[in-house]
């Protein structure tokens, strides 16, 4: 009964790994590679947000009737992370190590406390309320996360 939690948490870990890959290229001052790794990471994050905002959250809201609850808070945090992604991208474009490190560290903590809330509270609630939808829901989320659906940036 943890299908949604496990699936979405796995994608969180995949995004973590992509952020770390950028960190290593920045540490080596390999700016070209850093920019391409960062683009990879940002795509991963935006696809994850899109999967939640256009598939998982609306289904949760429709099923439970909770439109102003945790999903709304999560949307707000997504917006904050989008701003941080933009700031980190500008720092990379300017090859400013300190500014990138500052934005990336903030993004990491923001992202992780957001993940803790989702994995400990929201996803278990999804597992509880959306058990009947899992068979259709997981492939749809997979398609979105894999980037097969266009994501607005």
């Amino acid at each position: 009964m943890h299908a949604i939690t496990d699936f979405m948490a796995n994608d969180h870990r995949a995004c973590d790994a992509m952020l770390v890959a950028v960190e290593h290229t920045v540490a080596k001052r390999n700016w070209e590679l850093a920019r391409s790794e960062f683009a990879h990471y940002r795509d991963g994050m935006l696809h994850h947000f899109a999967a939640e905002e256009s598939v998982l959250f609306p289904l949760f809201e429709e099923t439970t009737g909770m439109y102003q609850g945790p999903t709304q808070v999560m949307r707000g945090e997504h917006a904050q992370m989008r701003l941080l992604l933009t700031a980190a991208a500008s720092a990379l474009a300017e090859q400013d190590v300190d500014d990138y490190a500052g934005n990336a560290e903030t993004l990491l903590i923001m992202m992780q406390q957001h993940n803790v809330k989702e994995e400990n509270v929201l996803y278990p609630m999804c597992d509880q309320h959306l058990a009947d939808h899992v068979k259709v829901l997981l492939p749809t989320l997979q398609t979105q996360i894999a980037g097969q659906v266009e994501v607005p940036t």
Binding site: A79, Q80, L83, A87, D98, D99, G102, N103, E105, T106
Partner: peptide, 20 residues
């Protein structure tokens, strides 16, 4: 500090990153 400043800025003003 960053989080509360960010909430205060409400998306209009970006807070300085936490390393600052």
């Amino acid at each position: 500090v960053w989080l509360h400043l960010q909430n205060l800025g409400d998306g209009r003003v970006a807070a300085p990153s936490m390393n600052k």
